[in-house]
């Protein structure tokens, strides 16, 4: 049995949005510590790795490790039915073939006063053997106009079932690496640079020197260069640009993939770029205290 409730269900919505253009099918791997996803795009040029730690959920139970294979487009369609303020609960049986997703509106506390009534109202609808104690919590949200004697029933809980599939995904072992360059910058600014650079060409060079980080593109139209300098003392944390460099690094990448990565921009104010010579770049979006989504992209290399 796996069951995990995320008060901020928006994170899940945004996560699936952030990977569904890159990967079609993937496994959600559930363990005691976390839920994680690792998947590559079809051409094996980029990889996305998601981790949400169990401590970031307000309820988390995973009796044994499970791999839940899902179609990202279909999950995205279902998650679109959840409101941005909804809490989302994921549930799966150990040997089941579906993932249950429950969306609850933000005013669930209102039901507490009306438990007795609700149990009665549920009546014979309760499936045989079901735990009535839970039924009223599951199906309705109640509000009342006290003194007037009117009970308003608000249907504020939605339950969807997503069909799961067996996915034989190729997992890659990613070694712990000490990168020569680590750049932290506002995620919105990174998104803007990638978007603007795509107008000019399809290959981006990222060069980090003591001067700063230079993003450059050359195309038929012309060339574009953006220099980002360290700004470690900006008033707001999220406006800071911090550059740690052991040695200068310059790499080139396909803008098409970097553009896919920026779909994660809404997940947090900050993006972290890790680079070393001749290895994939890591583009990481931290998700509060809950986890992260990391993208790996193989560079283009002269032979």
């Amino acid at each position: 049995m796996f069951e995990a409730r995320l008060t901020s269900g928006k994170i899940l919505k945004q996560l699936i949005e952030a990977l569904k253009d890159l990967v079609q099918e993937a496994n959600i791997d559930c363990s005691d510590d976390e839920i994680s996803i690792q998947a590559m795009d079809n051409s094996h040029v980029s990889l996305v790795a998601v981790s949400l730690r169990s401590g970031g959920f307000d309820h988390f139970r995973c009796d044994r490790p499970l791999s839940l294979g899902f179609n990202a487009t279909n999950m995205g369609k279902i998650l679109k039915c959840a409101g941005n303020e909804d809490a989302i609960t994921l549930k799966a049986e150990d040997d089941g073939d579906s993932l249950s997703m429950v969306f609850e509106g933000p005013n669930q506390d209102r039901i507490a006063d009306f438990g007795e009534f609700a149990r009665g109202a549920r009546g014979s609808d309760s499936p045989p053997g079901s735990r009535r104690e839970k039924c009223w919590k599951i199906d309705f949200n109640f509000a009342t106009m006290r003194g007037v004697g009117v009970l308003v029933v608000i249907f504020d809980r939605k339950i969807y079932e997503l069909k799961l599939m067996d996915i034989d995904s190729e997992q890659l072992g990613i070694p712990d690496t000490d990168y020569k360059v680590t750049i932290q910058m506002p995620s919105g600014e990174f998104q803007r640079i990638i978007r603007d650079m795509q107008v000019l060409g399809d290959t981006l060079s990222i060069s980090c020197t003591k001067e700063g980080v230079k993003f450059g593109v050359q195309g038929d139209l012309g060339t574009g260069n953006v220099l980002i300098r360290q700004n470690a003392h900006a008033e707001k944390d999220e406006d800071r640009v911090m550059i740690e460099m052991e040695e200068p690094v310059e790499l080139t990448f396909a803008l098409r993939y970097l553009n896919f990565f920026t779909k994660a921009t809404n997940l947090g104010p900050t993006v972290i770029l890790n680079m070393s010579p001749d290895v994939p770049i890591v583009v990481e979006y931290p998700i509060g205290e809950t986890g992260h989504i990391k993208y790996y992209l193989a560079p283009k290399i002269d032979e």
Binding site: Q171, Y296, E303
Partner: peptide, 14 residues
Amino acid sequence: VGKQKNLFSFFSKQ
């Protein structure tokens, strides 16, 4: 601008 590498050039399958 160089040849696009894939990830298998850098990471091993588990």
